[in-house]
Design a protein around this nucleic acid. Sequence first.
DNA 1: TGGGTTGCTGTTGCATGCAAGTTTGCATGG
DNA 2: CCATGCAAACTTGCATGCAACAGCAACCCA
Lengths: 228, 228
Amino acid sequence: MVSGNRQWVADRIYESLRCSIMNFELYPGSRVTETELAQRFDVSRTPIREALQRLAVEGYLTIRPKHGCYIRNLDVFELAEYYDVRVGLEVEAVELMGRRIPYRDLAALAEDWNPEHLKYGDEGTEALKDAEEDFHIRLAELSGNPILVQYLRDVNNHIRILRRLGFPDQDAVISTYQEHYEICQSILTNDIPKACRLLRTHIHASQAKGREVTLAQLEIHRRRATGG
Amino acid sequence: MVSGNRQWVADRIYESLRCSIMNFELYPGSRVTETELAQRFDVSRTPIREALQRLAVEGYLTIRPKHGCYIRNLDVFELAEYYDVRVGLEVEAVELMGRRIPYRDLAALAEDWNPEHLKYGDEGTEALKDAEEDFHIRLAELSGNPILVQYLRDVNNHIRILRRLGFPDQDAVISTYQEHYEICQSILTNDIPKACRLLRTHIHASQAKGREVTLAQLEIHRRRATGG
DNA sequence: TGGGTTGCTGTTGCATGCAAGTTTGCATGG
DNA sequence: CCATGCAAACTTGCATGCAACAGCAACCCA
């Protein structure tokens, strides 16, 4: 929610740990201790504690008092639950937009995803992955409800692992453009129900695609983690 | 998200501070410092820091580095935004329930709010306020999505101030029963769209009612805080 | 008079020390 | 062989100390 400033040790530790958790460097279910991390980062336990507590509040790990921290053991079912929450938030954002449609901004967003232009596809899929998440955030922002956006960002933090594994082929890129564009157009033509339907389908599709590759990825990283 | 255990000082401080913020004892916008709180609670700064950081992550206050903490300055507009997020989450919960309706549990929940019985109305409105929040949590739990429930609890933490100010008269009690009962019945008869409509109306009604009394309450506590 | 500098005070950020709690492994007895 | 009790090691929870930084006001100089 805050951070970004690298001046403080605790922030640096926090970001580093969050990255490690995201990249499966810290394998889900594994245990870490304050002392161990303090040695690894060559700092005292105080900033480590601060980082761990933040990560715990945000759901990245669970703290067992007087025993240690366990990296959150995320399973595909739980990730699916996050996706459903995402649906709830984003659909509500579209519903809110229906109260007063922000035509200008929405048209701009739609133009960014006009299938005839393919802005993001050219530079490889990495940029597209960021842009995909950004589209949904921008869409939510157009609801005019910053709190909702805040919650959506939080959800994204938890499922970003999955999102970055998708988009294997060019077909997926095209259809992403198509779907984003259609969603915007539906809102612009004041067909909120259709926009909600499309949005649901769009998110559920990526949910299914993500689930598909997660198990494989987990397996790969598990082998790497266990040295096998 | 966790807490409840009074064994640890930091948890006790956290709960106490959260309560104080809720009750406007710590007035929005006012500043608190670690040293001051450490003296007030007669503990060291360490558990105070921990509590403050948790409260900051959860949005109850903002930390200005090297300067102090400011109690989150919540306005009615922001609270309205939380209510809209609540709508999104709860409606999605009902949608999810539509996939596989939990008849038994839902019937039990409906029976608890059968207008002919009025379980909670008798013991005064205080119990009803807790029960009202509990109804929505139980309803969300029946979606089978614990993550969604977790987010809903978080939203509730932020708007509980408002919720506890409502229910001024017996008419509101009756209509609350009626609405809760109808929502359950709609799901039981597999009319998900109707349930969603009712839920939206129900939440927006309490939103409006809450907004109405908040400004007055804020004014009262402002006067008390400024000693006027 | 106005702009920049400097020193002071308040506050936090981090290191360290100690005590309490939890787990684990082993020894002992049945 | 299994259950039970105990002790040691490990880990965290909290207290305390110190240094650095932000904010503020007084001050100096033009």
